[in-house]
Write a protein that binds this DNA or RNA. Structure first.
Length: 304
DNA sequence: AAATAGTTCAACCGCTATGTC
DNA sequence: TGACATAGCGGTTGAACTATT
């Protein structure tokens, strides 16, 4: 649907619950509702010439009868050349699911990791399609875990029970993994995280060693995998991501300390707080690894 | 063919974070 | 340090569209 084809946008000003706050678009003479192709053209050419920003005064400068907020939204969500239109692909859907499991409804952060998609796109796709898909699989879209209360698993209108809960997704962000029988670590520049996961039973100690690298410095970080995705854009984002999503909130100080050591390329003694270290690495190494099944951390070390 | 129900998604709102003075 | 402006976020709305009865 293109907004420019619609015409009946109702003025909702009179319906505002809080009438003491005046929405910016209620100013007399300012237009609301769907944008026309002419308005799009004016806004596009103005922003391409003058650049983004100063949205409040942009409408006057550009000759648009819109509020700045509306102009910004139209540009960011629709007119920007980098905005990708069309169907969301399987790979994008998979990434949205995994990022949502980690980040929750933080649409902007999720969108920031999916080139060309806006937060509005992701949000709409989630609420109209993905959340329903998870529910139909017996998975709670808020927690990404199977519904605990069987009453929530509604039978369909023909009395059939819902399908069984989906198994955990396979690790779909490949990282470099090799088998090893020793737990020594190998340096990988510029920063290495290592983990060992015991497989087999107690009598058969076999380790899978996973190694990945995170290029981080004071200006930012990137975490690239073989899918070609670069996850993350700024150090602050990463810090916020991790702090908001650690399930060990009571250990925030330890977590912060580990994290600071990590970004400062300092060695960390993981044995004092193994659970927090495990959580940190689980979050860093692979967005798809649930904390419950994340591997045991044996080492976090800096290398130059 | 018409009525109704359900879905989609652009655009809105209120609120918060951040920057500037 | 506080006031104000601005940018950006997540939640919500509702017209347009599509499917079903």
């Amino acid at each position: 649907m293109t907004s420019s084809s619609s015409s009946g946008w109702k003025n909702r000003t009179s319906n505002n619950k809080n009438s003491s706050k005046t929405p910016c678009c209620t100013k007399v003479g300012l237009k609301r509702g769907p944008w026309t192709p002419e308005e799009d053209k004016i806004l596009s050419s103005y922003v391409q010439k003058q650049g983004e920003g100063r949205w409040r005064t942009l409408p006057t400068r550009a000759g648009l009868l819109r509020c700045g907020k509306s102009c910004r939204l139209r540009w960011m969500n629709y007119l920007r050349p980098s905005v990708k239109r069309g169907q969301i692909g399987e790979d994008e859907e998979d990434l949205i699911l995994r990022l949502h499991r980690l980040l929750g409804n933080r649409w902007s952060l999720i969108a920031g990791r999916i080139p060309g998609r806006t937060d509005n796109d992701i949000k709409n796709y989630w609420s109209t399609y993905l959340s329903k898909k998870l529910i139909s699989q017996g998975i709670d879209p808020r927690t990404h875990k199977p519904f605990m209360n069987p009453n929530l698993n509604n039978h369909d209108n023909q009395g059939r029970p819902p399908p069984p809960p989906a198994l955990a997704e396979p690790n779909s962000i490949p990282i470099f993994i090799h088998s090893s029988h020793d737990d020594s670590t190998t340096s990988i520049s510029p920063l290495e995280m290592s983990f060992n996961e015991v497989i087999g039973n107690d009598n058969r100690h076999e380790y899978i060693k996973g190694i990945t690298t995170l290029n981080a410095d004071q200006d930012g970080y990137n975490f690239e995998n073989s899918d070609g995705f670069i996850i993350g854009s700024s150090l602050r984002d990463l810090e916020q991501d991790l702090h908001h999503h650690t399930e060990f909130n009571t250990e925030d100080d330890v977590f912060a300390s580990y994290f600071n050591s990590f970004i400062n390329h300092e060695d960390v003694d993981v044995h004092q707080h193994p659970r927090t270290a495990k959580n940190l690495v689980a979050q860093l190494v692979d967005y798809t690894v649930p904390v419950d099944s994340s591997p045991d951390v044996t080492h976090i070390n800096a290398c130059n």
